[in-house]
Design a binder for these strands. Structure first.
Lengths: 325, 325
DNA sequence: CTGAAAGCGCTAACAA
DNA sequence: TTGTTAGCGCTTTCAG
């Protein structure tokens, strides 16, 4: 920039003003500066700019996996963009150590705010960062040990809607296949399911199968266990998209498949079974809210931590209406 | 940092040395500095560090979409990580304007190198950046107007393998459904297919259907056109994962479906048809090579632009062996 | 309206 | 081994 100033025969400040489109510069100077910029191939260094200005106009996102379908992240990017914020994302691979590493790196990076899909069991390591004024929002899963804003869908209601729908269609033995219960959503949904069964006056014995959601063997075994018993289930609720897909893949060749309601409205699952009834999250709302909370907190870091519950909705397409047999 | 120095009663340089784990510091000073750091909740500003040091240890990635399956980006992240490089990614949404915007933003960001899945028709806007010494590598698609390193799979061989496989199993009327030909891979693969047909002594009339790959209508129409004619095709090659999925979804209920060979080994497609024969890219190799090329170019910016063609492989699972009828 | 100078937080070269 | 100092490239007072 100093070279540009020299070449244009102006002061450093003037170049800066031109680059930042300050209207208070004589037009012939603007021209001279722009010529010098073009001639020297000058481009401004964003780091130096941010260092000086204190804000970056950039949000950091640490999610389970970039290169993995994630409608929330999609919405986050869209909304951020419409607010002139750039989103730079990296993967945690759902690995505690890696998550801490990349999140800490992002903390030092000087982003205006961080959007995190939490993996770690506890997030005490973020306490100093939050105290230092960094804006952080968690989505989908809850963070323990750090008071940050949360955007989480109504897992409990989702399961209740699915359960009630199946009961309404005559099912009384309903099974559940879900993710690991050490993961927030896996735990929430499994517990919600248990409550539904209890309230309905039944026993959960043999009805709740949780574990790795990308393990076909495990899902197959769960289905076998629930269908080959003396009182087999007539319907199954699947706790997330992966469980749903594995279940549908397994059930495809089955003659008398149980009714199915899945949690999460997933493209792939719909390909497998176009009439799949699902509990759909409003991913758009989750993403939008996450960015909004972040912007509010950036504007006022003193805000008390908030927790927004986003709606879920039962989308009835047919697979839940299969009568018990 | 200056506060830490004061609190610890040491010089600025010593704090820097401690923070950077320089071994040449008396241990009692290390301790005092670390105490001060803890007490003050100090954390180093990465921007200032990078500004001063000149390197960032970070790679920028501009891809079609984070939050979209992308095995190459997955590999890129893995390999980069194993080389102590962080990857920060953002989406271009396959939109020319947006691509230019985010890529330019990344250029100014001071990343050590950029990995781009190109969208724009031309990339002349990158010429000054490259001249300024920025390391850039393109993957999957070719960049026009800017001389950068490329990693691209052997599209032509892939189509040839698929074609030959079908011919070997008795097919003589083979159709092709692929992506827009304005997109590099769409064009390359369609042309390779045309060459195959010509070499085989046939006419391509009515056999090549290219267009939007996520438009079910279009794919359905293409299939209708190719199966309801006087000499219907007995086999179809699909030009990318999306085309394959749409095709399989459409063909699912068909009594006498044609043989299918797909380009790209896609999880979802396999769910739809477990015996799907595909041309598989070595995404791992693409990602690994991209990072390697970038590292080499960072080390020596004077390198001539290179172009690496990564291998493809026919994975025979059965769907290509369906006899013509 | 423009230029000069200070300083964002850090590292590296130089002295001590 | 340690402290001091000079920038990295930029924005932003503050004079003029």
């Amino acid at each position: 920039m100093v070279d540009v100033a020299r070449a244009a025969g102006v002061g450093l400040g003037t170049v800066s003003r031109v680059v930042n489109e300050d209207p208070n510069v004589r037009s012939y100077l603007v021209e001279r500066v722009n010529e010098a910029i073009a001639a020297l191939g000058y481009r401004r260094d964003e780091r130096a700019r941010q260092l000086r200005r204190g804000v970056s106009g950039t949000l950091g996102a640490a999610v389970r996996g970039i290169s993995r379908a994630n409608p929330v992240l999609r919405a986050v990017e869209r909304v951020a963009r419409s607010n002139d914020l750039m989103v730079l994302a990296t993967s945690t691979e759902d690995d505690e150590r890696l998550e801490k590493e990349v999140v800490m790196a992002m903390c030092r990076q000087g982003f205006d705010g961080l959007i995190i899909e939490p993996t770690a069991a506890r997030h005490d390591y973020l306490v100093p960062e939050i105290r230092a004024g960094l804006a952080i929002v968690a989505f989908d899963r809850q963070m323990r040990g750090a008071k940050v804003d949360h955007v989480i869908c109504d897992n409990r209601l989702g399961i209740e809607l699915a359960f009630r729908h199946l009961v309404d269609h005559g099912h009384s033995r309903i099974g559940y296949i879900g993710d690991f219960e050490r993961i927030f959503t896996g735990r929430e949904r499994a517990n919600a399911f248990r409550r539904c069964v209890a309230r309905h006056g039944g026993s959960v014995d043999g009805l709740v199968h949780t574990g790795g959601d990308s393990d076909p063997e495990r899902i197959g075994a769960a289905l076998d266990a629930m269908t080959s018993k003396r009182w087999p289930v007539t319907a199954v609720i699947t706790g997330n998209a992966n469980c749903t897909i594995q279940t549908l893949a397994r059930l495809r060749s089955e003659a008398h498949a149980p009714a199915v309601v899945g949690f999460d409205d997933d493209e792939t699952a719909l390909l497998l079974r176009p009439d799949l009834t699902v509990v759909a999250q409003d991913s758009e709302a989750v993403g939008r809210t996450a960015v909004e909370l972040l912007r509010e907190r950036i504007a006022d870091p003193g805000l008390a931590p908030r927790r927004v519950t986003t709606p879920v909705q039962l989308i009835v397409r047919g697979s839940g209406k299969l009568p018990p047999r």
